[in-house]
Amino acid sequence: MPAKPLPLDDAEARLASEAIRRLERALREVLFGQDRLVELVVLGVLARGHVLLEGLPGLGKTELVKGLSRALALSNKRVQFTPDLLPGDITGNPVLEEVDGRRVFTFQPGPVFANVLLADEINRASPKTQSALLEAMQERSVTVMGQTHRLPDPFVVLATQNPIELEGTYPLPEAQLDRFLFKVEVPAAGVETLERIVLEREIGVPPEVAVVLDGHGLSKLQDQVRRVFMPPPVANYIARLVAATHPGHPAAAGVRYGASPRAALALSAAARARGLEHGRINASYEDVRDIALPVLRHRIVLDYGARLEGLSPDRFVARLLDEVPAHDKALPSSLSAAKV
């Protein structure tokens, strides 16, 4: 059992929060009008998770990744996934080289060897290529010809997929979806945002991004996220939320498959990250509620009947949050809970 990290103190939490806010501000200067998207991407990075972005083309997903890597002074790579993309094109290939008069295979690292990897339109690659990312995302290492190569730390995959033009795509299998901490839907920009984009951006000119943190700073923040205290009642709330997604639970009507234990871990890590973002030394119920939707929406498989009735994963999670309160004990008839 790993040693329990020391809890944060208030001063550490406050400093960490300020650093996170700075990073978010920097990214908001890259991507206008997408504050929630920026926040979730930052939380995902802090929680050592990977983020799946779903949205139409041209919404700034690539710019966000570039901005993130620049703000953090991290290396970044972008891979456009296509049906003919091979696993080795991502992980790297052994190349026959002549060394000291002998021909030996030398591993040529692929684009996955970067701090921030943008896997663009990941659902267009074949399942075999998609699965090549599995080990990288989960183990943070790549094995080629029996040799394991560690990926740089920090390592974050930001994958995108397009909800339209689904012909010739390979929807990500549940196992792979489960490896993404968040699935974030990128909304279309509003008029004010578009106006600001028109005024402040030009095609072909990347926005300037100030470096806010370096890799070491990010790693420190990630460590601090692990040190954010998870109170037992909050852990119990997370456990009850995840359990309530499974068929057989009264709240899980219409669900074919519920969330996995990895979802509980994801909720915990993301709640901790959000707690630190808010300068707290502990995670809270509100943190869990706030990140429940991006954590759970891609981990719930609804049955056909529920989909026919118009139930979506988003609506299910919203209903779940209503039906599973933080305080699970009923109140007697003589008492009523005051509004929060």
Binding site: F229, P231, N282
Partner: peptide, 13 residues
């Protein structure tokens, strides 16, 4: 924000 539970667990004031 669960501060009472954290304090009861000995974490934070």
């Amino acid at each position: 924000d669960a501060r009472l539970s954290a304090a009861a667990a000995g974490v934070g004031p």
